[in-house]
Design a protein around this nucleic acid. Structure first.
Lengths: 65, 65
DNA sequence: ATTATATGTAAAGTTTATTTTACAAACATA
DNA sequence: TATGTTTGTAAAATAAACTTTACATATAAT
């Protein structure tokens, strides 16, 4: 699963810490997701989708499929 | 997080066991998600989206937001 | 060069998703 | 009624997501 969080975060001029705070997760969680260490939960994906005003499918790309 | 898996599954005339097999998860996982016991992982949500040919946002509705 | 801010990472712990096994309940149907 | 199929559920185990703490590296200033 790839994602565009780093780019979207840059476009919105947010640090990892600022984004983490808006999403109510830790900065390490944002970092790990950006670095592809794991995928976010579905609820967290929805939060990102809402914050960046983009569908989940636009933020995340399933590697298979 | 609510979802329409039970309805979509019925439309596609699949049992929980058949859907589970297509998604490569256990039947109990399908049951638990349908019954709202927990949310699927993001990769599993993508699999459901692909199988039912509907965007994730149409299958799942975030309770907050 | 120092100071401040941002990012990468690691270890240990908690919570949530998922599996396996197993059994009970509901439903159809012969 | 008896039999087969589907669904609900529960307990124990594993895996994955996430937190907290902590430290190291990198950047950007000026």
């Amino acid at each position: 699963m790839k994602n565009k969080i780093k780019v979207l975060r840059a476009q919105h001029e947010l640090t990892q810490a600022q984004l983490a705070q808006k999403l109510e997760v830790s900065r390490q969680t944002i970092n790990a997701i950006e670095k592809g260490k794991f995928d976010p939960s579905l609820p967290l994906a929805f939060k990102l989708s809402k914050l960046f005003a983009k569908p989940i499918e636009e933020i995340f790309q399933n590697e298979e499929s």
